[in-house]
Design a protein around this nucleic acid. Sequence first.
DNA 1: ATTGCTTTTGGACATTTGTCCAGTACTCCC
DNA 2: GGGAGTACTGGACAAATGTCCAAAAGCAAT
Lengths: 187, 187
Amino acid sequence: MKNLIAYFQQSGFTSGEAQGVADLFKTKTFAKGEHFLEEGKTARHLAFISRGLFQFYFLKDGDEHTTYVVGENNFLASLSSFISQIPAKEYVRALGDGEVWQIHFNDLQHLKNHNAKFQTFYIGVLEHLLICIDDSRHKLIALTAEERYEALLDEEPELLQQIPLQYLASILGVTPRHLSRIRNNIR
Amino acid sequence: MKNLIAYFQQSGFTSGEAQGVADLFKTKTFAKGEHFLEEGKTARHLAFISRGLFQFYFLKDGDEHTTYVVGENNFLASLSSFISQIPAKEYVRALGDGEVWQIHFNDLQHLKNHNAKFQTFYIGVLEHLLICIDDSRHKLIALTAEERYEALLDEEPELLQQIPLQYLASILGVTPRHLSRIRNNIR
DNA sequence: ATTGCTTTTGGACATTTGTCCAGTACTCCC
DNA sequence: GGGAGTACTGGACAAATGTCCAAAAGCAAT
């Protein structure tokens, strides 16, 4: 709970307000491989990751394609499913053991509609999310898989320790065979 | 001005409120090829496109790579540059003659901070944008260039009339040579 | 240490996509 | 109508990436 309250305090809430908002979030733990959300189901919760790593992926022709990997102190939700309350087009699962604090869609709506300070905070979250996703989309277009691998190497080297290479290949959008070639090139 | 006011009215503003908000937007026209924003400059305006088609692109090794193409009745801005007020990483130019209604960053800040109804509206815009970008990013990962071409064919066939094939190739992320092959396959 | 299981590597070949370029078609202007 | 410029196509070859698979390396349990 600590880092959630701290997060709200850093975002301009007083200690009491932060406590009040955080109270609407309930904790939930995930074992490695367990799903936070499955394709076809509608996302009812927005979560804040307090521990662990979560992977977004979808299936095409039987194999997995990763769209995001999100770690601690970030919000977690299948955006279109949660915002529009429609069935998700993707799966979200814990890559290792994890823990989140989650708020129900209805409670969030209530905060959005009746709490002016929360509105401002929520706008900030959306703007930040927008920049992140736009940037990630830009990287997808601008960089080759090899360049993205190198970017990961110096931006989040800890990721490379935490996740098996086959998942990394899926994140980069190449086959494990080709990731092996990329690693070879770089040496 | 008409469709801008209409847009605000449809979004929950009264006629008078819509008028008041729209008054903060100034019109600006663009000749074919003219830039709305250039790399390295900071985006000071958020625009609403009333006429025309705008292309986002960046240069790498001397050639253009398209990241977005946006048409009428949509908002236009280099997100990270406008939101964070930092230099843009991309160019935005008119693909044909165009006209926009644009609001200055400071005026938007004022609306965001002092107009409760506008806050709610702005949240809606951000959420919608988020879904669009997330979806487009998803398509980038999930679909091949050929599948994206086919999607364009039935989702916005008018685009294929309006823009030269070489731009279309850049939108799809392939060379004109390869787009020619794709078109051949489909016949 | 041995066994069995999973992960990673890399060879051989196929497919996809890019590069270079020449030919054809189309448009605009005089 | 002729010529200059631009857009589109497609051949020939090269480079990048995928597929299939077997060998090697790592790892956990006994």
